[in-house]
C-alpha cells in the first residue's frame, strides 16, 4: 500500500523522477537475474498443477484430450480396490519408516558425535546408500532378497532357519521394501541430526556433566529437545519422501506380487503410462497431494502444541 502511494506521489512530483527511474532499473536488473530460474521452476510446477486438476475431471487417455466427466474419476476412486491397497501399502511404509529413521538417525548421530578417529569414514559409510541411485540399490537388493538365489535366504539356511518368500511373498514384500528404503535413506537423518547436535553449546553439556546428569538424562533432557526443529524437519521430509516412494519398486517388485507393493505414486504412473487412463491417474495424484498437505499441516500443529506444552 505504502509502495503504491510512494509510486503515485513520485509520478506527480516532477523533481522526484530520478529515484523513479532508478527503481525501474532496479526492477529490470533484479528480474533479469532472478527471472530465468524462476520462470522455469514456476512454469514447470504451477502450469502442470493446474493442468493436472483439469485432467482429473476428464477421461483423457494421454493421447487425446478426453471428454469432461465431472467428478466421476474421484467417485470411481473410492470404489477402486487397488487404490485402497496402494493407500494401505503407502501407509505401512510411512508408519514404519518415519519413526525408524528418526530414532535410528538420532542414536547413530549421538554415537558419531565424539572425538573418535574415523568419524568421517563412518559418516561416509552411512551416506553411501543415500547417494547410490535407486536403480542400483534396487537391483542389488532385489538380488540379495531374491527368494530363490538371494544371499538373505542363503544366510537363513546357514542359520538353520526356514527359507522365506521375501520379495516374492505378498505378505512380506512390502516389509522388505520398507527395510530397503530405510537402508537407502537413514544416512540423511544421521547427517542432519549430527549437524544439529554439534550446534549444542559445550557449556550446556559440561554443566549437565558437572551436575551429575547421567548419559540417558543428558540425551533425553538436553539433546532431544535441542534437535526438536530438526526432528520436525526430518519428519516432514521423511513423509514427503515416503509418499513419493517409486524408484525402488520399478527396479525390484514392479508392484507385485498381487499388487502387494503398489504405492500411490507407482499406481499413478501405471494408470497414466501403462493403462493410459491419465485423467484417472491425475485424480489419484491430486488426492495424494491433498492428503500429504493435510498430514503435514496436522503434523506441524501437533508439533507446535507439544512445543507449547514444554
Amino acid at each position: 500500500m505504502s509502495n503504491v502511494q510512494a509510486l503515485s506521489r513520485a509520478e506527480t512530483a516532477a523533481p522526484k523522477r530520478r529515484p523513479d527511474r532508478r527503481k525501474l532499473a532496479d526492477n529490470v536488473t533484479g528480474w533479469s537475474f532472478a527471472g530465468p530460474a524462476t520462470v522455469i521452476i514456476l512454469g514447470f510446477s504451477l502450469i502442470p498443477m493446474a493442468w493436472a486438476l483439469m485432467l482429473s475431471f476428464t477421461d483423457s487417455d494421454l493421447m487425446t484430450p478426453g471428454r469432461n466427466v465431472g467428478l466421476d474419476n474421484y467417485r470411481a476412486l473410492f470404489q477402486d480396490p487397488v487404490f485402497y491397497q496402494a493407500l494401505r501399502n503407502t501407509g505401512l511404509l510411512v508408519v514404519l519408516y518415519i519413526p525408524a529413521s528418526l530414532i535410528a538417525g538420532l542414536l547413530v548421530a549421538v554415537l558419531l558425535n565424539r572425538k573418535v578417529r574415523g568419524i568421517g569414514f563412518y559418516r561416509a559409510c552411512f551416506l553411501v546408500p543415500y547417494i547410490a541411485s535407486a536403480t542400483s540399490a534396487g537391483l542389488l537388493m532385489g538380488y540379495i532378497f531374491d527368494r530363490d538365489f538371494g544371499l538373505m535366504n542363503g544366510l537363513f539356511v546357514k542359520l538353520g532357519l526356514p527359507v522365506q518368500g521375501l520379495l516374492s511373498s505378498p505378505s512380506q514384500a512390502m516389509f522388505v521394501l520398507t527395510l530397503i528404503f530405510f537402508w537407502t535413506r537413514f544416512g540423511f537423518s544421521v547427517v542432519i541430526y549430527l549437524a544439529a547436535i554439534q550446534e549444542i553449546s559445550k557449556e550446556v553439556l559440561e554443566a549437565a556433566a558437572i551436575d551429575g546428569a547421567s548419559r540417558w538424562a543428558t540425551f533425553w533432557h538436553i539433546i532431544v529437545p535441542s534437535v526438536r526443529s530438526m526432528t520436525i524437519f526430518l519428519g516432514v521430509w521423511g513423509l514427503i519422501d515416503a509418499l513419493q516412494f517409486f524408484d525402488l519398486i520399478v527396479t525390484t517388485t514392479k508392484g507385485g506380487p498381487a499388487n502387494s507393493t503398489v504405492t500411490i505414486v507407482y499406481y499413478v504412473w501405471q494408470l497414466a503410462f501403462s493403462f493410459f487412463t491419465a485423467g484417472y491417474g491425475a485424480a489419484v495424484a491430486y488426492v495424494l497431494f491433498a492428503g500429504t498437505l493435510l498430514l503435514i499441516i496436522a503434523g506441524l500443529l501437533v508439533a507446535r502444541r507439544r512445543g507449547a506444552m514444554r
Binding site: 502442470p48 493442468w51 485432467l55 513419493q244 517409486f246 500429504t292
Partner: peptide, 12 residues
C-alpha cells in the same frame, strides 16, 4: 512441496 507425480502427466 509439489510432488512430481502430480505434475508428471501434464509435463509429459
Amino acid at each position: 512441496l509439489i510432488p512430481f507425480q502430480l505434475t508428471v502427466i501434464p509435463t509429459f
